[in-house]
Computed example of a mutant assay.
Amino acid sequence: MSYYKRDKRAWLVLSDGTVFEGYNFGCEGTTIGEIVFNTGMTGYQEVLTDPSYFGQIVLQTYPLIGNYGINMDDMESERSWVNGYITKEWCEEPSNFRNTKTINEFMIEQDKIGIWDVDTRAITRIIREHGTMNAAITTEDIDTTKEALMEQIRDFKVVQPVQAVTRKNKGWYYSQDNRANHVALIDYGFKHNILRMLLRLGCNVTVMPANTTVDEIRMLNPDGIMLSNGPGDPAENVQIIENIKDFIAYGKPIFGICLGHQLMALAMGGETIKLKYGHRGMNQPVKDVARDRVFITSQNHGYAVVPESIKEDIGTITHFNLNDGTCEGIEYKNCCAYTVQFHPEASAGPNDTGYLFEKFTNLMERGQLGCL
Rank of each mutant, 00 (worst) to 15 (best):
L259A: 05
T132K: 09
I240F: 11
G349R: 00
R98Q: 15
D119Q: 03
C27A: 07
V162F: 05
E93Y: 10
Q284R: 12
L322R: 11
K8D: 14
L220V: 00
R9S: 11
I113A: 02
G40Y: 03
T31G: 03
G33V: 08
D223P: 11
M268W: 07
K333Y: 08
M226Q: 00
E46K: 12
T361W: 03
I257Q: 05
S2E: 15
D215I: 01
L64A: 14
N193Q: 11
Y332I: 07
G189D: 14
E271G: 03
Q262C: 01
N67G: 15
D313R: 11
C371D: 12
L195W: 04
D233A: 10
I86Y: 08
Y332A: 12
Y44F: 15
G302L: 01
P344W: 02
W116D: 01
I57K: 02
V82T: 11
F54N: 00
I248L: 07
D324M: 06
D288C: 10
M1N: 13
P161G: 06
N229M: 06
T166P: 09
M75T: 03
S228A: 09
F342E: 00
M282E: 04
L64Q: 10
G367P: 06
F247E: 00
K359S: 09
Q239N: 15
I35K: 04
T138E: 05
V19N: 05
C335F: 13
E331F: 08
Y85H: 05
K252L: 03
D111V: 04
D143E: 14
N83L: 06
Q262P: 09
R154T: 03
N169A: 14
N237E: 14
I103N: 01
S2C: 15
M1T: 11
Q152D: 14
F156N: 12
T326N: 10
M41H: 15
S15F: 00
